[in-house]
Write a protein that binds this DNA or RNA. Structure first.
Lengths: 132, 132
DNA sequence: TGATTATATTCAATTATACTCATATAATAT
DNA sequence: ATATTATATGAGTATAATTGAATATAATCA
């Protein structure tokens, strides 16, 4: 009853926001956490749920864990995947992508996450306000 | 956030079983109830959830309410619909279709549901045992 | 080694969901 | 009109899902 579990996994906004982000490429936990403004434990939890269903996969590099969409999942669930991204049009998802884009064009990275976290957050928040 | 609600609706086995049945054509509540061996109130509630999302629609004929897949939903969510029916291959769903087929080839109908309910149930149970 | 940091996990509280039993509503039939 | 029947809904309960806070684990760095 695997596909039923997949529907359940996709029936949560936070997980959809994560998937939406990862479509733009891999991200580590602390990046997702900042861009989506979710707590660390909650981010980790949702990533684990998606990973346990093989919707996403992870790779550890030094102390960071990078998550990315699982190509096999996409290939094996093409219709669902296409449908999903047709549907991810709500403001929330667009705004998240804006934050990701700004983050990527900045000089921030996860190298100094602990020290800079507040700076990253206020940077991203400010950017999003500017755009309105 | 409509499609998220749709995923939630599809993340439940009883609702998937209902959708699976309705693919073969309209059915009234008491028929679904017998074929799936679900309680009356539970059946009604799940139908209501699907109907509130326009996944299915209903038409009242005399005292019976007939439910059927909503053609607009199928048209507007073609990829999801195709994906869904590709996935409905588990034993449970096949067995449900068997029960529906046997019911349809019988002389039972919902006309005398109240009197015949036990007969319908044991008829369908027996048939399914025969097939093993 | 010991301190720091990124991520995962446990615990407890809250909220949402599914279910049953009982009752309400709406339609038919006598 | 009254009784009967099909379906819907309300109340209560059990189970599951989501979350934050605190803690554990694993990797790096000094």
């Amino acid at each position: 009853m695997k596909f039923q579990e997949i529907f359940k996994a996709l029936a949560d906004e936070n997980r959809l926001r994560i998937i939406n982000l990862l479509r733009q490429g891999e991200l580590c936990v602390c990046e997702i956490e900042s861009i989506l403004r979710m707590s660390q434990s909650n981010t980790s939890r949702h990533l684990n749920i998606l990973k346990s269903l093989n919707i996403i996969d992870a790779e550890k590099k030094a102390q960071w864990v990078y998550y990315f969409l699982n190509e096999d999942f996409i290939a094996n669930n093409k219709k669902l995947y296409d449908y999903l991204f047709e549907q991810l049009t709500a403001d929330t998802y667009k705004k998240d992508i804006d934050r990701l884009t700004k983050y990527r064009s900045s000089t921030f990275s996860c190298e100094n996450f602990n020290e800079e976290k507040e700076d990253v957050l206020s940077f991203l928040d400010k950017i999003c306000d500017d755009e309105k």
